[in-house]
Design a protein around this nucleic acid. Structure first.
Lengths: 218, 218
DNA sequence: CGTTCCATAGGGTGTTTACCCCAATTTAGT
DNA sequence: ACTAAATTGGGGTAAACACCCTATGGAACG
Protein backbone atom coordinates (compact mmCIF):
# COMPACT_ATOMS: atom_id res chain seq x y z
CA UNK A 1 0.00 0.00 0.00
CA UNK A 2 1.10 3.51 -0.80
CA UNK A 3 2.40 5.52 2.09
CA UNK A 4 0.00 8.12 3.39
CA UNK A 5 0.43 11.77 2.44
CA UNK A 6 -0.14 14.63 4.85
CA UNK A 7 -1.61 17.73 3.21
CA UNK A 8 -1.79 21.35 4.35
CA UNK A 9 -4.68 23.05 2.60
CA UNK A 10 -4.68 26.85 2.33
CA UNK A 11 -7.67 28.83 1.02
CA UNK A 12 -9.37 31.91 2.41
CA UNK A 13 -12.85 30.72 1.44
CA UNK A 14 -14.13 28.19 3.94
CA UNK A 15 -16.65 27.00 1.39
CA UNK A 16 -13.94 25.94 -1.02
CA UNK A 17 -11.42 24.92 1.60
CA UNK A 18 -13.71 22.63 3.58
CA UNK A 19 -15.46 21.15 0.57
CA UNK A 20 -12.12 20.32 -1.01
CA UNK A 21 -10.79 18.96 2.28
CA UNK A 22 -13.71 16.58 2.52
CA UNK A 23 -13.13 15.45 -1.04
CA UNK A 24 -9.43 14.81 -0.40
CA UNK A 25 -10.16 12.85 2.76
CA UNK A 26 -12.23 10.41 0.75
CA UNK A 27 -8.90 9.16 -0.60
CA UNK A 28 -7.51 6.62 1.88
CA UNK A 29 -3.90 7.65 1.36
CA UNK A 30 -4.50 11.41 1.64
CA UNK A 31 -4.71 13.09 5.02
CA UNK A 32 -5.63 16.72 5.41
CA UNK A 33 -3.24 17.36 8.28
CA UNK A 34 -4.23 21.00 8.63
CA UNK A 35 -6.10 23.80 6.92
CA UNK A 36 -5.36 27.53 6.96
CA UNK A 37 -7.31 30.59 5.80
CA UNK A 38 -4.24 32.59 4.69
CA UNK A 39 -0.54 32.31 3.95
CA UNK A 40 0.52 33.66 7.34
CA UNK A 41 -1.49 31.08 9.23
CA UNK A 42 -0.21 28.42 6.84
CA UNK A 43 3.40 29.23 7.73
CA UNK A 44 2.53 28.87 11.38
CA UNK A 45 1.03 25.42 10.77
CA UNK A 46 3.89 23.96 8.74
CA UNK A 47 5.94 22.95 11.77
CA UNK A 48 3.23 21.23 13.80
CA UNK A 49 1.23 19.69 10.97
CA UNK A 50 4.34 18.29 9.24
CA UNK A 51 2.86 18.25 5.75
CA UNK A 52 4.32 16.34 2.83
CA UNK A 53 2.49 18.66 0.46
CA UNK A 54 0.93 22.12 0.58
CA UNK A 55 -2.08 22.92 -1.58
CA UNK A 56 -2.36 26.70 -1.63
CA UNK A 57 -4.79 29.09 -3.25
CA UNK A 58 -3.19 32.08 -4.97
CA UNK A 59 -6.31 34.25 -5.02
CA UNK A 60 -6.03 35.53 -1.48
CA UNK A 61 -5.77 39.17 -0.42
CA UNK A 62 -2.24 40.45 -0.09
CA UNK A 63 -0.67 37.94 -2.47
CA UNK A 64 1.57 36.60 0.27
CA UNK A 65 1.33 33.01 -0.93
CA UNK A 66 4.50 33.16 -3.03
CA UNK A 67 6.52 34.65 -0.21
CA UNK A 68 5.18 31.95 2.10
CA UNK A 69 6.07 29.28 -0.43
CA UNK A 70 9.60 30.67 -0.67
CA UNK A 71 10.03 30.45 3.08
CA UNK A 72 8.67 26.92 3.29
CA UNK A 73 11.01 25.61 0.60
CA UNK A 74 13.89 27.18 2.52
CA UNK A 75 13.02 25.73 5.91
CA UNK A 76 11.40 22.49 4.70
CA UNK A 77 12.89 21.66 1.28
CA UNK A 78 11.16 18.29 1.09
CA UNK A 79 7.66 19.77 1.18
CA UNK A 80 5.98 19.84 -2.24
CA UNK A 81 3.81 22.78 -3.21
CA UNK A 82 0.87 22.89 -5.58
CA UNK A 83 -0.85 26.19 -6.29
CA UNK A 84 -4.55 26.61 -6.99
CA UNK A 85 -6.02 29.60 -8.77
CA UNK A 86 -9.07 30.66 -10.70
CA UNK A 87 -6.72 32.55 -13.02
CA UNK A 88 -3.60 31.90 -15.00
CA UNK A 89 -2.13 35.36 -15.24
CA UNK A 90 1.44 35.57 -16.48
CA UNK A 91 2.37 37.23 -13.20
CA UNK A 92 1.00 34.26 -11.24
CA UNK A 93 2.66 31.59 -13.39
CA UNK A 94 5.91 33.51 -13.35
CA UNK A 95 6.00 33.66 -9.56
CA UNK A 96 4.84 30.08 -9.11
CA UNK A 97 7.70 28.88 -11.30
CA UNK A 98 10.10 31.22 -9.52
CA UNK A 99 9.40 29.53 -6.19
CA UNK A 100 9.80 26.09 -7.81
CA UNK A 101 6.21 24.99 -7.33
CA UNK A 102 5.49 21.37 -8.24
CA UNK A 103 2.08 22.10 -9.67
CA UNK A 104 -0.45 24.73 -10.70
CA UNK A 105 -4.07 23.64 -10.95
CA UNK A 106 -6.74 26.05 -12.18
CA UNK A 107 -10.15 26.05 -10.55
CA UNK A 108 -11.74 25.14 -13.85
CA UNK A 109 -10.45 21.62 -13.20
CA UNK A 110 -12.49 19.11 -11.26
CA UNK A 111 -11.54 18.00 -7.74
CA UNK A 112 -10.48 14.68 -9.26
CA UNK A 113 -7.75 16.50 -11.16
CA UNK A 114 -6.47 17.94 -7.90
CA UNK A 115 -6.26 14.42 -6.52
CA UNK A 116 -4.32 13.12 -9.51
CA UNK A 117 -2.08 16.20 -9.46
CA UNK A 118 -1.25 15.41 -5.85
CA UNK A 119 -0.41 11.80 -6.68
CA UNK A 120 1.71 12.85 -9.63
CA UNK A 121 3.68 15.31 -7.53
CA UNK A 122 4.10 12.80 -4.71
CA UNK A 123 5.62 10.30 -7.11
CA UNK A 124 8.26 12.84 -8.07
CA UNK A 125 6.50 14.45 -11.01
CA UNK A 126 4.76 17.73 -11.59
CA UNK A 127 1.29 18.81 -12.66
CA UNK A 128 0.34 21.98 -14.50
CA UNK A 129 -3.13 22.54 -15.93
CA UNK A 130 -3.29 22.89 -19.68
CA UNK A 131 -3.87 26.66 -19.66
CA UNK A 132 -0.74 27.04 -17.58
CA UNK A 133 1.31 24.37 -19.37
CA UNK A 134 0.78 26.09 -22.70
CA UNK A 135 2.65 29.13 -21.47
CA UNK A 136 5.63 27.29 -20.06
CA UNK A 137 8.89 26.38 -21.78
CA UNK A 138 11.52 23.99 -20.49
CA UNK A 139 15.17 24.99 -20.58
CA UNK A 140 18.38 23.85 -18.95
CA UNK A 141 17.74 25.45 -15.59
CA UNK A 142 14.12 24.36 -15.30
CA UNK A 143 10.76 25.82 -16.23
CA UNK A 144 10.17 29.36 -17.48
CA UNK A 145 7.35 31.45 -18.86
CA UNK A 146 7.25 31.04 -22.63
CA UNK A 147 8.17 33.75 -25.13
CA UNK A 148 4.57 34.38 -26.11
CA UNK A 149 3.56 35.01 -22.54
CA UNK A 150 6.61 37.15 -21.86
CA UNK A 151 5.57 39.50 -24.64
CA UNK A 152 3.22 41.18 -22.17
CA UNK A 153 3.91 41.95 -18.54
CA UNK A 154 6.91 39.69 -18.29
CA UNK A 155 8.97 42.05 -20.47
CA UNK A 156 8.55 44.90 -18.05
CA UNK A 157 11.73 45.65 -16.14
CA UNK A 158 11.78 45.36 -12.38
CA UNK A 159 11.51 49.11 -11.92
CA UNK A 160 8.72 49.39 -14.47
CA UNK A 161 6.78 46.64 -12.71
CA UNK A 162 7.22 48.55 -9.47
CA UNK A 163 5.95 51.77 -11.05
CA UNK A 164 2.98 49.93 -12.51
CA UNK A 165 2.02 48.73 -9.05
CA UNK A 166 2.21 52.27 -7.70
CA UNK A 167 0.02 53.57 -10.51
CA UNK A 168 -2.50 50.80 -9.89
CA UNK A 169 -2.55 51.77 -6.22
CA UNK A 170 -3.82 55.17 -7.24
CA UNK A 171 -0.60 57.11 -6.71
CA UNK A 172 -0.01 59.97 -9.15
CA UNK A 173 3.39 60.64 -10.69
CA UNK A 174 4.30 63.32 -8.19
CA UNK A 175 3.58 61.03 -5.25
CA UNK A 176 5.44 58.11 -6.81
CA UNK A 177 8.45 60.39 -7.34
CA UNK A 178 8.31 61.63 -3.75
CA UNK A 179 8.02 58.19 -2.19
CA UNK A 180 10.90 56.87 -4.28
CA UNK A 181 13.18 59.89 -4.07
CA UNK A 182 13.41 60.19 -7.82
CA UNK A 183 12.38 62.91 -10.26
CA UNK A 184 8.83 63.17 -11.55
CA UNK A 185 10.45 63.13 -14.99
CA UNK A 186 11.91 59.71 -14.32
CA UNK A 187 8.55 58.36 -13.23
CA UNK A 188 7.09 59.88 -16.37
CA UNK A 189 9.69 58.12 -18.49
CA UNK A 190 9.08 54.77 -16.80
CA UNK A 191 5.35 55.00 -17.27
CA UNK A 192 5.76 56.05 -20.88
CA UNK A 193 7.90 53.01 -21.62
CA UNK A 194 5.43 50.75 -19.82
CA UNK A 195 2.63 52.16 -21.95
CA UNK A 196 4.66 51.69 -25.11
CA UNK A 197 5.53 48.07 -24.26
CA UNK A 198 1.94 47.19 -23.40
CA UNK A 199 0.38 49.34 -26.13
CA UNK A 200 -1.77 51.04 -23.50
CA UNK A 201 -2.26 54.78 -23.61
CA UNK A 202 -4.24 55.85 -20.56
CA UNK A 203 -3.77 55.51 -16.84
CA UNK A 204 -7.17 53.89 -16.47
CA UNK A 205 -6.34 51.07 -18.88
CA UNK A 206 -3.00 50.64 -17.16
CA UNK A 207 -4.78 50.14 -13.84
CA UNK A 208 -7.27 47.72 -15.37
CA UNK A 209 -4.38 45.77 -16.89
CA UNK A 210 -2.55 45.58 -13.57
CA UNK A 211 -5.66 44.36 -11.75
CA UNK A 212 -6.52 41.87 -14.49
CA UNK A 213 -2.98 40.47 -14.44
CA UNK A 214 -2.99 40.09 -10.69
CA UNK A 215 -0.28 42.71 -10.12
CA UNK A 216 -2.56 44.72 -7.84
CA UNK A 217 -5.82 44.44 -5.99
CA UNK A 218 -8.74 46.67 -6.87
CA UNK B 1 -39.27 11.89 6.15
CA UNK B 2 -38.69 15.23 4.49
CA UNK B 3 -39.43 15.41 0.81
CA UNK B 4 -36.40 15.42 -1.37
CA UNK B 5 -35.13 18.67 -2.88
CA UNK B 6 -33.79 18.97 -6.39
CA UNK B 7 -30.93 21.47 -6.71
CA UNK B 8 -29.44 23.22 -9.73
CA UNK B 9 -25.88 24.24 -8.91
CA UNK B 10 -24.27 27.02 -10.95
CA UNK B 11 -20.58 27.91 -10.65
CA UNK B 12 -17.96 28.52 -13.31
CA UNK B 13 -15.20 26.83 -11.34
CA UNK B 14 -15.48 23.05 -11.63
CA UNK B 15 -13.32 22.70 -8.55
CA UNK B 16 -15.85 24.51 -6.39
CA UNK B 17 -18.93 23.30 -8.23
CA UNK B 18 -18.09 19.59 -8.11
CA UNK B 19 -16.70 19.64 -4.59
CA UNK B 20 -19.81 21.40 -3.33
CA UNK B 21 -22.04 19.06 -5.33
CA UNK B 22 -20.43 16.06 -3.68
CA UNK B 23 -20.92 17.63 -0.27
CA UNK B 24 -24.60 18.35 -0.95
CA UNK B 25 -25.23 14.82 -2.18
CA UNK B 26 -24.09 13.48 1.16
CA UNK B 27 -27.41 14.79 2.49
CA UNK B 28 -30.07 12.16 1.82
CA UNK B 29 -32.81 14.68 1.07
CA UNK B 30 -30.75 16.84 -1.27
CA UNK B 31 -30.35 15.90 -4.92
CA UNK B 32 -28.06 17.80 -7.25
CA UNK B 33 -30.36 17.52 -10.26
CA UNK B 34 -28.01 19.41 -12.56
CA UNK B 35 -24.91 21.58 -12.57
CA UNK B 36 -24.06 24.43 -14.93
CA UNK B 37 -20.86 26.43 -15.53
CA UNK B 38 -22.62 29.72 -16.29
CA UNK B 39 -25.95 31.54 -16.08
CA UNK B 40 -26.83 30.89 -19.72
CA UNK B 41 -26.37 27.14 -19.39
CA UNK B 42 -28.28 27.27 -16.11
CA UNK B 43 -31.30 28.81 -17.83
CA UNK B 44 -31.21 26.02 -20.38
CA UNK B 45 -31.19 23.39 -17.63
CA UNK B 46 -34.07 24.76 -15.59
CA UNK B 47 -36.77 23.13 -17.69
CA UNK B 48 -35.34 19.62 -17.89
CA UNK B 49 -33.78 19.39 -14.43
CA UNK B 50 -36.91 20.76 -12.70
CA UNK B 51 -35.09 22.18 -9.68
CA UNK B 52 -36.77 23.20 -6.45
CA UNK B 53 -33.84 25.44 -5.68
CA UNK B 54 -31.02 27.11 -7.60
CA UNK B 55 -27.68 27.69 -5.92
CA UNK B 56 -25.85 30.22 -8.07
CA UNK B 57 -22.44 31.82 -7.86
CA UNK B 58 -22.39 35.57 -8.50
CA UNK B 59 -18.68 35.80 -9.29
CA UNK B 60 -18.92 34.70 -12.89
CA UNK B 61 -17.79 36.71 -15.92
CA UNK B 62 -20.48 38.88 -17.46
CA UNK B 63 -22.60 39.19 -14.32
CA UNK B 64 -25.54 37.55 -16.03
CA UNK B 65 -26.65 35.67 -12.92
CA UNK B 66 -29.12 38.34 -11.83
CA UNK B 67 -30.72 38.54 -15.23
CA UNK B 68 -30.96 34.75 -15.27
CA UNK B 69 -32.52 34.77 -11.80
CA UNK B 70 -35.06 37.33 -12.95
CA UNK B 71 -36.09 35.13 -15.87
CA UNK B 72 -36.35 32.01 -13.74
CA UNK B 73 -38.61 33.68 -11.18
CA UNK B 74 -40.83 34.82 -14.05
CA UNK B 75 -41.12 31.45 -15.75
CA UNK B 76 -40.85 29.26 -12.63
CA UNK B 77 -42.04 31.33 -9.64
CA UNK B 78 -41.87 28.38 -7.24
CA UNK B 79 -38.13 27.93 -7.68
CA UNK B 80 -36.10 29.28 -4.77
CA UNK B 81 -32.78 31.01 -5.43
CA UNK B 82 -29.76 31.26 -3.17
CA UNK B 83 -26.74 33.26 -4.31
CA UNK B 84 -23.15 32.43 -3.47
CA UNK B 85 -20.32 34.92 -3.61
CA UNK B 86 -16.87 35.54 -2.24
CA UNK B 87 -17.89 39.19 -1.88
CA UNK B 88 -20.69 41.20 -0.41
CA UNK B 89 -20.53 44.35 -2.49
CA UNK B 90 -23.47 46.71 -2.14
CA UNK B 91 -24.09 46.31 -5.84
CA UNK B 92 -24.36 42.52 -5.44
CA UNK B 93 -26.66 42.64 -2.42
CA UNK B 94 -28.79 45.29 -4.06
CA UNK B 95 -29.33 43.19 -7.16
CA UNK B 96 -29.84 39.96 -5.23
CA UNK B 97 -32.60 41.61 -3.21
CA UNK B 98 -34.05 43.17 -6.36
CA UNK B 99 -34.58 39.74 -7.90
CA UNK B 100 -36.16 38.49 -4.64
CA UNK B 101 -33.43 35.97 -3.83
CA UNK B 102 -34.16 33.71 -0.86
CA UNK B 103 -30.59 33.66 0.34
CA UNK B 104 -27.09 35.02 -0.02
CA UNK B 105 -24.23 32.92 1.37
CA UNK B 106 -20.65 34.20 1.31
CA UNK B 107 -17.82 31.83 0.51
CA UNK B 108 -16.31 32.49 3.89
CA UNK B 109 -19.02 30.23 5.28
CA UNK B 110 -18.51 26.49 5.55
CA UNK B 111 -20.31 24.03 3.28
CA UNK B 112 -22.44 23.09 6.29
CA UNK B 113 -23.86 26.59 6.31
CA UNK B 114 -24.88 26.17 2.69
CA UNK B 115 -26.73 23.03 3.65
CA UNK B 116 -28.59 24.71 6.49
CA UNK B 117 -29.32 27.73 4.30
CA UNK B 118 -30.91 25.39 1.78
CA UNK B 119 -33.05 23.74 4.47
CA UNK B 120 -34.09 27.10 5.86
CA UNK B 121 -35.15 28.35 2.44
CA UNK B 122 -36.98 25.12 1.65
CA UNK B 123 -39.03 25.45 4.80
CA UNK B 124 -40.22 28.87 3.65
CA UNK B 125 -37.57 31.00 5.29
CA UNK B 126 -34.54 32.87 4.06
CA UNK B 127 -30.83 32.82 4.79
CA UNK B 128 -28.38 35.71 4.50
CA UNK B 129 -24.84 35.51 5.82
CA UNK B 130 -24.00 37.90 8.62
CA UNK B 131 -21.92 40.26 6.44
CA UNK B 132 -24.88 40.58 4.10
CA UNK B 133 -27.59 40.63 6.79
CA UNK B 134 -25.92 43.57 8.53
CA UNK B 135 -26.50 45.73 5.45
CA UNK B 136 -30.15 44.84 4.98
CA UNK B 137 -33.22 46.56 6.40
CA UNK B 138 -36.77 45.24 6.38
CA UNK B 139 -39.59 47.51 5.33
CA UNK B 140 -43.20 47.10 4.26
CA UNK B 141 -42.45 45.96 0.73
CA UNK B 142 -39.69 43.52 1.67
CA UNK B 143 -35.91 43.70 2.03
CA UNK B 144 -33.74 46.62 1.03
CA UNK B 145 -30.15 47.73 1.33
CA UNK B 146 -29.74 49.59 4.60
CA UNK B 147 -29.06 53.31 4.95
CA UNK B 148 -25.44 52.78 5.92
CA UNK B 149 -24.76 50.74 2.82
CA UNK B 150 -26.69 53.12 0.63
CA UNK B 151 -24.40 55.95 1.64
CA UNK B 152 -21.93 54.63 -0.91
CA UNK B 153 -22.75 53.39 -4.39
CA UNK B 154 -26.46 53.01 -3.74
CA UNK B 155 -26.94 56.78 -3.57
CA UNK B 156 -25.65 57.27 -7.09
CA UNK B 157 -28.41 58.18 -9.51
CA UNK B 158 -29.12 55.95 -12.48
CA UNK B 159 -27.26 58.24 -14.83
CA UNK B 160 -24.31 58.56 -12.49
CA UNK B 161 -24.08 54.79 -12.18
CA UNK B 162 -24.07 54.60 -15.96
CA UNK B 163 -21.29 57.17 -16.23
CA UNK B 164 -19.27 55.32 -13.60
CA UNK B 165 -19.42 52.16 -15.68
CA UNK B 166 -18.22 54.04 -18.75
CA UNK B 167 -15.31 55.51 -16.82
CA UNK B 168 -14.40 52.07 -15.47
CA UNK B 169 -14.44 50.76 -19.03
CA UNK B 170 -11.67 53.17 -19.86
CA UNK B 171 -13.73 55.70 -21.81
CA UNK B 172 -12.63 59.32 -21.45
CA UNK B 173 -15.09 62.15 -20.99
CA UNK B 174 -15.09 63.12 -24.65
CA UNK B 175 -15.91 59.58 -25.74
CA UNK B 176 -18.62 59.17 -23.11
CA UNK B 177 -20.19 62.43 -24.30
CA UNK B 178 -20.04 61.34 -27.94
CA UNK B 179 -21.55 57.90 -27.34
CA UNK B 180 -24.39 59.38 -25.28
CA UNK B 181 -25.10 62.44 -27.41
CA UNK B 182 -24.60 64.79 -24.49
CA UNK B 183 -22.13 67.56 -23.81
CA UNK B 184 -18.67 66.88 -22.39
CA UNK B 185 -19.65 69.41 -19.75
CA UNK B 186 -22.56 67.25 -18.65
CA UNK B 187 -20.33 64.22 -18.35
CA UNK B 188 -17.92 66.36 -16.39
CA UNK B 189 -20.72 67.38 -14.03
CA UNK B 190 -21.90 63.80 -13.53
CA UNK B 191 -18.41 62.58 -12.75
CA UNK B 192 -17.82 65.47 -10.38
CA UNK B 193 -20.95 64.66 -8.42
CA UNK B 194 -20.02 60.97 -8.34
CA UNK B 195 -16.64 61.89 -6.93
CA UNK B 196 -18.20 64.17 -4.34
CA UNK B 197 -20.68 61.50 -3.23
CA UNK B 198 -18.03 58.83 -2.95
CA UNK B 199 -15.31 61.13 -1.61
CA UNK B 200 -13.02 59.99 -4.42
CA UNK B 201 -10.92 62.50 -6.31
CA UNK B 202 -9.13 60.74 -9.14
CA UNK B 203 -10.20 58.68 -12.10
CA UNK B 204 -7.95 55.82 -11.06
CA UNK B 205 -9.59 55.49 -7.64
CA UNK B 206 -12.99 55.71 -9.30
CA UNK B 207 -12.09 52.77 -11.53
CA UNK B 208 -10.74 50.78 -8.60
CA UNK B 209 -13.95 51.48 -6.67
CA UNK B 210 -16.12 50.33 -9.58
CA UNK B 211 -14.15 47.11 -9.97
CA UNK B 212 -14.10 46.46 -6.22
CA UNK B 213 -17.84 47.01 -5.99
CA UNK B 214 -18.55 44.66 -8.86
CA UNK B 215 -19.87 47.39 -11.15
CA UNK B 216 -17.31 46.58 -13.83
CA UNK B 217 -14.79 43.94 -14.75
CA UNK B 218 -11.10 44.75 -14.84
C1' DC C 1 -46.99 74.66 -4.20
C1' DG C 2 -42.78 74.86 -3.01
C1' DT C 3 -38.27 72.13 -2.12
C1' DT C 4 -35.13 68.95 -3.53
C1' DC C 5 -32.84 66.15 -6.63
C1' DC C 6 -31.76 64.97 -11.41
C1' DA C 7 -30.02 65.85 -16.05
C1' DT C 8 -28.64 69.03 -18.97
C1' DA C 9 -25.03 72.82 -20.39
C1' DG C 10 -21.67 76.54 -20.23
C1' DG C 11 -17.34 79.65 -18.38
C1' DG C 12 -13.04 79.53 -16.36
C1' DT C 13 -8.57 77.76 -14.11
C1' DG C 14 -4.92 75.33 -12.31
C1' DT C 15 -3.10 70.53 -12.27
C1' DT C 16 -1.99 66.26 -14.31
C1' DT C 17 -1.21 63.31 -18.07
C1' DA C 18 0.73 61.53 -22.52
C1' DC C 19 4.23 61.93 -25.38
C1' DC C 20 7.74 64.27 -28.32
C1' DC C 21 12.72 65.48 -28.12
C1' DC C 22 17.38 64.66 -25.79
C1' DA C 23 21.38 62.55 -22.75
C1' DA C 24 24.39 60.44 -18.76
C1' DT C 25 25.41 56.51 -15.97
C1' DT C 26 24.88 51.86 -14.63
C1' DT C 27 23.67 47.06 -15.33
C1' DA C 28 23.29 42.84 -18.04
C1' DG C 29 24.08 39.83 -21.65
C1' DT C 30 26.79 37.59 -25.49
C1' DA D 1 34.88 43.90 -24.33
C1' DC D 2 31.13 45.56 -26.69
C1' DT D 3 26.22 46.14 -27.12
C1' DA D 4 21.75 46.56 -25.35
C1' DA D 5 18.84 47.54 -21.74
C1' DA D 6 17.69 49.80 -17.72
C1' DT D 7 17.58 53.87 -14.81
C1' DT D 8 18.10 58.32 -14.14
C1' DG D 9 16.98 63.37 -15.52
C1' DG D 10 15.54 67.42 -18.37
C1' DG D 11 12.56 70.82 -21.92
C1' DG D 12 8.39 71.45 -24.02
C1' DT D 13 3.32 70.91 -25.49
C1' DA D 14 -1.39 69.66 -26.31
C1' DA D 15 -4.82 67.21 -24.23
C1' DA D 16 -7.33 65.62 -20.39
C1' DC D 17 -8.75 66.07 -15.70
C1' DA D 18 -10.60 68.09 -11.18
C1' DC D 19 -13.26 71.49 -9.61
C1' DC D 20 -15.02 76.23 -8.92
C1' DC D 21 -19.15 78.97 -10.45
C1' DT D 22 -24.02 79.70 -12.58
C1' DA D 23 -28.42 78.15 -14.83
C1' DT D 24 -32.74 75.85 -16.84
C1' DG D 25 -36.41 72.33 -17.32
C1' DG D 26 -38.42 68.34 -15.38
C1' DA D 27 -39.60 64.76 -11.97
C1' DA D 28 -40.59 63.57 -7.22
C1' DC D 29 -42.32 64.06 -2.65
C1' DG D 30 -44.58 66.04 0.89
Amino acid sequence: MTKQCRILLVDDHALVRDALAERLMREPDLIVAAVAPDAKEALARVADSAPDLILMDIDMPGMLCFEAARRVTESHPAVKIIFLSAFFHDAYIDQALAVRAHGYVTKSESPDVVVSAIREVLSGGAYFSEEVRSRIVVDGSGLRLGAGARSRSATLSRREMEMLRYVAQGWNKKLIALRNNISVKTVDNHISSIMEKLDIHTTVDLVRFAIREGLADA
